[in-house]
Structure formats: C-alpha cells, structure tokens
C-alpha cells in the first residue's frame, strides 16, 4: 500500500497493534493508515474487485452479546470480501453477563483457533477483558457506553472524503452523549485529528465531565450548531423519552431535534451524519435525513470499507507480530 509509505519512519507503525479496542489515546499516525486503506477498499468495493484471498483460511467470529444487525452485517461483509471464514455468534446478553462466563467463552474461542474476534457487549470494558484471554485479535464493535472505534473511523473517513482535511473543521455531536459509545470514540478521534468538537444536548444527557475530553459543551442546538461544518446526530433510545432524563419525544424534538431551521445555523454545505438507526421525528426530521446534506448512506458504505481495513491491518499484526 503506497499510501502508508509516507508514515514509514513513524515508530507507531513499526509494530502494528494486535487489537482495536478503542480510539482513546490513538495517535494520528495510527489512525491515518486505517483511513487510507479504507479509502482504497471503498474503491475496490465499488468495482467489486476485492482481494478475496487476503484472509483465506482465517477465521472471523462475530461475537455479539447485544442485538445488532447493521454492525454485524457490516463486519460479516467485510470479512467475506477479504475471503475469511465468517461465523456469527449471537449470545443473549442476559445469559452471559458475568465475568466468569465471559472468560469461559474466551477459552472456547481459543480452542476453536479463532484469528479475528469482533465483539459487541453491553458492558463497557468487556472486549478488553476478552482481549486479555484470547489468542485472536479483538475488534471492539461497541462496548457499553465506552467506545465504538470502527464507527468513529468510518465517520472520520466520510468527513475526510468531503473536506480533504480535518484541521480547522468544527463538528457538533448532538444528543444523548451520556449513553453514547459513538460519541466518545468520535470525540477521541476527531480531537486527535485536530477538529474542534462540540457536544450538544440536554444537561441530563451530557455528562458534566465530558469537557475534560477536549470538547465544548452546549445545551441548546441554536448555540451548538452555529457555524459548524458537520452535524453528527446521535440516536436517542426511546426508553429515555420518559422518566427522569427527557420528558417526552415531542419535547426532545422541539428543543434538540435537527430540522432545516436549525441546520441553517451551520455552515451552508455542512454535512449531516447519523450512526443509525435513526428515530425520524425524534432526533432528526425526515427532510434533513433525506436531504442533499445528509451523508448517512455514505457512512454505511464507508463502514464496510473501514472494517475491511481494520481486519486487514489487525490480521498482519496478529499472533506474535
């Protein structure tokens, strides 16, 4: 890959990482190769000429302790397009939520000689715990409210394809930041790449300490969206729409929903992003979601490319590299 040559002298690339557990602490020199390679795979995906022999003979297990269709399918496609043997294991999180059982699972996977293990879990830190015990390379596909690194990479790739650079961009991440692993991974990645990041949401859904991650906090959309280059909406779980976090979906949409009027406060051609699945009429108006400024479908496309790049790079750094 010629794109990676420019970083050839960088110490970070001398020893590829074995796992991808999170973005926190990742240096731009570690991030950029993922984006560069994913860009390449995005082209190959469009021409349907992916290297089907790259991961031939390797076993990829999608171990999902939490329901997911989109992310699991994206990883499954990524693995298959590179020729890996892909197995999906979906485990009801209710029956496996004790550390001991998780480690038993790890022992089982070792016995199966798994090469790549993609893990989603409702508990923050669960993939890291597995990574200590399995021989496979672990990819965190979302753990609790901690991180979702491949989502951040695909978001970053989408942004880079539109703006070319990260420096100087202002990005608003809006909604339920408290419960969002997508928000955390994006904050880490985008601040590392030199973006100004704002988080916007009701105070009950924005942790007070999030400012320590290098972002500014805004409690009104009017304040948070002014002049931004990218508006990244977060999914708000329906179950938060009553109780003590948000009183109702209609109040949420009235004050924190993205509609054309609010989008007009951003820069003229600002991108609208959403990790999906969307709650139309709750956090985002359909007219915005389906507008020319929306890159939501492109995000999904980049998702497969980014996951191919991740599997490719990790498979080189695996066992004993």
């Amino acid at each position: 890959m010629s794109e990676r040559g420019s970083h050839g002298s960088n110490v970070f690339l001398t020893r590829p990482a074995r796992h991808l557990l999170g973005v926190q602490g990742m240096h731009p020199a570690r991030i950029t190769p993922f984006l560069d390679l994913a860009e390449h795979y995005a082209l190959l995906n469009r021409s349907r000429k992916t290297p089907r022999d790259l991961l031939r003979g390797r076993t990829l297990i999608n171990l999902f302790f939490e329901d997911s269709t989109r992310t699991r399918t994206s990883f499954e496609l990524a693995g298959k397009r590179l020729g890996a043997d892909v197995v999906n294991m979906t485990v009801a999180s209710s029956s496996v939520n004790k550390g001991e059982t998780l480690l038993d699972t790890a022992a089982t996977l070792n016995a199966m000689h798994t090469d790549l293990l993609v893990v989603r879990h409702s508990q923050s830190g669960a993939p890291a715990l597995l990574a200590q015990k399995v021989q496979a390379s672990v990819v965190n596909a979302g753990d609790g409210t901690h991180e979702h690194p491949t989502q951040a990479l695909l978001d970053a790739l989408t942004i880079r394809r539109h703006f070319g650079v990260f420096e100087g961009l202002t990005i608003a991440i809006c909604g339920d930041v408290s419960h969002s692993r997508v928000a955390r991974s994006n904050i880490h990645l985008l601040t590392a790449m030199g973006c100004q990041v704002r988080v916007v949401g009701p105070p009950t859904l924005v942790p007070g300490a999030i400012g320590a991650l290098g972002v500014s906090i805004h409690h009104t959309m009017e304040d948070g969206l002014r002049g931004v280059d990218v508006v990244m909406m977060l999914r708000v779980q329906r179950e938060r729409m009553k109780g003590t976090q948000v009183p109702s979906a209609r109040e949420y949409f009235r004050f924190y929903g993205l509609d054309n009027k609010r989008l007009a406060l951003a820069k003229p051609h600002a991108l609208v992003m959403h990790p999906g699945p969307m709650n139309r009429g709750v956090e985002i108006d359909s007219r915005v979601a389906d507008s020319d400024q929306s890159v939501i479908r492109e995000q999904v496309e980049m998702g497969v490319a980014v996951r191919m790049a991740v599997l490719d790079i990790l498979s080189r750094g695996g066992d004993g590299a």
Binding site: K242, G243, T244, Q245, V246, P247, S248, R250, E251, R254, F255
Partner: peptide
C-alpha cells in the same frame, strides 16, 4: 413531574414556552 407524582419528568421546556 407528571401528575406531581414525583417519578417522571414533566415537559419542562414545552411548559415554559
């Protein structure tokens, strides 16, 4: 809170408007 029952938040923003 809804019905002043002390559990679920009322629509504070819409009520203020």
């Amino acid at each position: 809170t809804r019905e002043c029952a002390g559990t679920e938040m009322a629509e504070i923003g819409l009520l203020a408007e």
